[in-house]
């Protein structure tokens, strides 16, 4: 029996009797990160990184949580579990599992570039590596984030010159926080949507030092919004909620913006290919550095990615999971206002 099985409830470790990011309720769940397609409601026990816990609590309410540091072992039925930074969002971790000398690593979602808040992705040597492949095509190679930040900043300045509000569409957990520092270099007028605000406050209350933001409320005046930046989740796109910001320009921050057609389909004024996922070269680098004997590729372009790996002498298989495409906001975080 392999150390991790792919079951209809999720990735299951029989030897330790626990699941990793299960998509149906189970007794014991190890959580890679707090995005809703990975950390679901209804488990009896959640094990996660220290930084993930406050967000899980904010999202899922009271539950049995255990939080640990990176590289701090926990044992379940003699199976050794440790977490390592995945660089995806705050608290995101790879899960390393060791039993009788066999080592598996579940990547969760990850990116290689250090964004300054999520920790530096750390390659972990293992026998089997389960990797995401959201952007597993060679057309997805990101520009260095500093260049993208400069693009975003220039865009904001251009909007300020004509007294327009800059509305940035970004995932409320992860990209919204990542954007705060580069935005704060241009303006201190940062407004956020309620969904972004809730996560922001959960992090601030947990001790995170982030640039100050204000929640958009019905009382927020037109005058305050002139030249300001608003961060909102993608559920706000095309919604009446945006009307209060007129005149505004809308910019979408997502790896999918790499392809022009996607930006045009969304009717965005600007698209910034800023992603919290590894690009093509990042995925390849991560897979090589694990030195794994077998790579399992899931959610994304897994068929393409595994074929390429196999042609390049790396044994790879595709597996189906029920994780979503979290470069787009899941339905759960719908507008709380209006």
């Amino acid at each position: 029996m392999p150390l991790i099985e792919f079951t209809d409830k999720g990735l299951y470790c029989r030897a330790g009797d626990f699941y990793i990011d299960p998509w149906r309720p189970v007794d014991k769940a190890v959580i890679t990160h707090a995005h809703s397609d990975h950390a679901r409601w209804g488990n009896k026990y959640y094990l996660c990184h220290h930084d993930t816990r406050p967000i899980l609590q904010q999202r899922l309410g009271p539950n049995t949580y255990q939080d640990i540091a990176w590289n701090e072992p926990v044992y379940m039925n003699g199976v050794r579990i440790t977490l390592f930074p995945a660089g995806h969002i705050i608290g995101s971790s790879q899960v390393r599992i060791e039993s009788n000398g066999e080592i598996w690593v579940v990547s969760g979602d990850y990116k290689i570039e250090n964004d300054g808040i999520s920790g530096q992705f750390e390659p972990v040597k293992c026998h089997s590596f389960i990797t995401e492949s959201t952007f597993g095509l060679p057309i997805y190679n990101w520009k260095p984030q500093t260049e993208i930040y400069t693009d975003v900043q220039n865009w904001i300045r251009k909007n300020q010159e004509v007294s327009k509000t800059s509305v940035l569409i970004a995932y409320s957990l992860g990209k919204a926080q990542r954007l705060l520092h580069p935005i704060a270099e241009v303006t201190d007028k940062i407004f956020v949507h309620g969904a972004v605000y809730n996560i922001h406050m959960a992090l601030v209350n947990a001790g995170w030092k982030l640039p100050a933001v204000q929640r958009v409320t019905p009382e927020t005046s037109k005058e305050e919004l002139k030249g300001a930046v608003v961060i909102a989740p993608s559920s706000a796109e095309g919604s009446p909620w945006l009307r209060r910001f007129a005149p505004y320009e809308i910019g979408i921050c997502s790896g999918w913006m790499q392809v022009r057609g996607n930006a045009r389909r969304k009717n965005a004024d600007a698209g910034f290919a800023l992603s919290d996922h590894a690009d093509w070269n990042g995925l390849l680098q991560a897979c090589r550095e694990t030195e794994a004997e077998c790579i399992y590729a899931t959610h994304g372009f897994q068929a393409v990615f595994t074929r390429y790996l196999n042609e390049h002498g790396i044994n790879a298989k595709e597996v189906k999971t029920e994780y979503g495409d979290d470069e787009l906001e899941p339905a759960e975080l719908k507008l709380e206002e209006d």
């Binding site: 095509l137 392809v259 022009r260």
Partner: peptide, 20 residues
């Protein structure tokens, strides 16, 4: 074949090449 896969996702040959 990987070029072709990329092309089917981008939907535009000129852009696919520019991206690669």
């Amino acid at each position: 074949w990987l070029f072709e896969e990329s092309y089917h996702t981008v939907g535009d040959l000129a852009e696919t090449i520019a991206l690669l």
